[in-house]
């Protein structure tokens, strides 16, 4: 029972992190490792800066 509850909480937490983009850097690292393992990955700070800049260069919010 407790184990199932823990698993449920874990799944929920993962969903919240994914929805909010909290796990974005980890997903970037995974993608980077899979696609270009030889090139150095961006630092957390550089990645976040780039991500913000890209996100807000287009229409992202509406009425």
């Amino acid at each position: 029972m407790a184990k199932r509850l823990m698993r449920w909480v874990h799944t929920l937490w993962r969903a919240v992190r994914q929805l909010s983009g909290d796990d974005g850097y980890e997903r970037y690292l995974a993608h980077h490792a899979a696609s270009r393992p030889d090139a150095p990955a961006l630092s957390r700070h550089a990645w976040f800066a780039l991500r913000q800049q890209q996100k807000w260069s287009g229409i992202k919010r509406c009425c």
Partner: peptide, 24 residues
């Protein structure tokens, strides 16, 4: 790995809804 990225449908739903639902 940035703007083009296959994403879980519920996450896409969340992003899409957050983007379309404003004060209007």
């Amino acid at each position: 790995g940035r703007d083009f990225m296959p994403t879980n449908r519920w996450v896409v739903f969340g992003h899409h809804f957050a983007a379309i639902a404003g004060p209007g």
